[in-house]
Design a protein around this nucleic acid. Structure first.
Length: 450
RNA sequence: GUGGUAGUAGCUCAGUUGGUUAGAGCACCGGAUUGUGAUUCCGGGGGUCGGGGGUUCGAGUCCCCUCUAUCACCCCA
């Protein structure tokens, strides 16, 4: 009988596991440098939590089942509902702003393809309790900083920045009611993947004879790439009264956000691009997606503001903004760019042991060095010197500790630098005190000074 | 959920118009070799040729189904 890994799931053998952990390390380091705090939560949640957030249709894309207590449960497909539940339940006792991040596995029952598996890891970072553009700026900066920390250049990727709030105003200026506007936003989200003819058909379904007009407006807006063009477009919108004032305030939000991003040193990585809308309807303000510079492939990360979600899931009103970055697309990109991740660590010391008489001394030193925190290996069975040494070299270890009959008689250990093939004889009792110098500077420093 | 392509050893692959007991390189294990290195030599384990059915005297090879991978569509939180 032979078992295979389930479709869309991965085994992580040491090389792959090390690369994966290296991604986690970069994520964690980046988040911590922005002073985000790490949290974690169960991978299994009530099914209802995800339905409440995303609608009944989501069930078809989940790993879900009924547990022995007759509860409908599902493996989490994303972190945001869980976070909203967590923060919502404690909203009144948490110091704001809440800046939290998490790294965890997520599960979606979908057909695997390039950049998309059924089990994948996501880095989620969110700021809750702050409604101003300062929070959006902080998150976008973290996103850019994270990608750069892998060694990606500023022009290897781009963060496309858009604004659902602004789209509402633009569509309102076209006299579209809420329902129609939602429909049109859905169309805008899919425009890139849609032929021109089909686009006009869809628009005609939504707004009737005004399709051509609306389409022209949308096209103009989607072409905007800088703040000046954005501002002049906004000022040209035929709105009056309260909605005009709101729009004016929105221009200031944009101005503020762009300035903050520039001061934070990530302005080069951000491009205004209102063709980003992002599928599901819970985003409320600025939204953004990171892509490889050419725009090819799946989004590296995506996020935006979701000011209503915490309340929708039963908590108090709580503004929020966040993003998620997956490991699969990221790893693909790093490989394309020939950026290597951390390989498995090698031993600091490997023992070469002559025989049973020497073994007891060797193992005492092994235990001592391990207590000091070094990676130490020794052969689990007796073998001749040549074989042991050969194995030691092939293992990639830095130093061999040689324990033979001569060394035992003299109470010494022979330290061999496996890279330079130089050796140093050291009284055993000095090993512990010499070891940090050996690791840091090699044995040459001791040979000359001792 | 729909469609294209592919599947032979752990990995990369060869395998003739269908013809005897399916091969190579790399990797792995053992030995030459119980006091010093990636070389060399010798030996070894490994495969129901993804799985099932069919055609045939005979199938790794041809046909059908299925599984898996991959790419695209749908979807993309």
């Amino acid at each position: 009988m032979e078992f295979e890994t389930l479709p869309g799931f991965r085994d992580f053998l040491p090389d792959a596991c090390s690369a994966r952990n290296s991604i986690f390390d970069h994520w964690r380091l980046a988040a911590e440098s922005f002073n985000f705090q790490e949290y974690d939560a169960p991978v299994l949640e009530p099914l209802e939590l995800f339905i409440e957030k995303s609608g009944e249709e989501i069930v078809g894309q989940l790993f879900n089942f009924t547990d022995r207590g007759d509860r409908s449960v599902a493996l989490r497909p994303e972190m945001t509902p869980t976070l909203a539940r967590l923060v919502g339940a404690r909203a009144n006792s948490l110091k704001r702003p809440v800046k939290w991040f998490t790294i965890g596995e997520h599960y979606r029952y979908e057909r695997p393809q390039k950049g998309r598996l059924r089990a994948f890891y996501q880095f989620n970072a969110d700021i809750l309790g702050e409604s101003g553009p300062g929070a959006d700026a902080e998150l976008i900066a973290l996103l850019a900083h994270t990608l750069r920390s892998f060694g990606l250049a500023a022009d290897d990727f781009v963060i496309r920045l858009s604004d659902r709030n602004l789209w509402w105003s633009i569509l309102a200026a076209e006299d579209l009611e809420t329902e129609k506007a939602i429909e049109v936003l859905g169309i805008i989200d899919k425009m890139d993947r849609m032929g021109r003819e089909r686009l006009l058909e869809k628009l005609a379904d939504a707004v009737g004879s005004r399709a051509g007009e609306v389409c022209a407006r949308i096209d103009a807006v989607r072409e905007i790439r800088d703040f000046a063009a954005l501002e002049s477009m906004i000022r040209s919108l035929p709105l009056e009264g309260a909605s005009a004032e709101a729009l004016h305030a929105r221009v200031e939000d944009w101005r503020c956000l762009m300035e903050l991003l520039s001061h934070l040193g990530v302005g080069d990585s951000v491009r205004i691009d209102l063709s980003i809308v992002r599928g599901l309807a819970y985003y409320t303000g600025f939204v953004f997606e990171a892509f490889e510079a050419s725009g090819a492939g799946r989004a590296l990360a995506g996020g935006g503001r979701y000011d209503d979600l915490v309340q929708k899931l039963g908590g108090p009103a709580m503004p929020a903004v966040g993003f998620a970055m997956g490991d699969v697309t990221l790893a693909d990109l790093l490989q394309e760019k020939s950026i290597d991740l951390e390989p498995p660590a090698k031993a600091d010391f490997v023992c070469v042991i002559g025989g049973v008489e020497e073994q007891c001394f060797a193992l005492q030193d092994v235990a001592c060095l391990r207590h000091l925190g070094y990676r130490v290996e020794y052969p689990l069975k007796s073998q001749n010197f040549g074989k042991q040494l050969k194995a030691a070299v092939q293992s990639g270890a830095s130093f061999a500790l040689i324990y033979g009959s001569e060394e035992r008689e003299q109470g010494v250990v022979r330290v061999r630098d496996l890279r330079t093939a130089t050796e140093l004889v050291l009284p055993r009792e000095k090993l512990a005190s010499a070891v940090s110098g050996i690791i840091a500077d090699g044995i040459e420093s001791l040979t000359s000074g001792d």
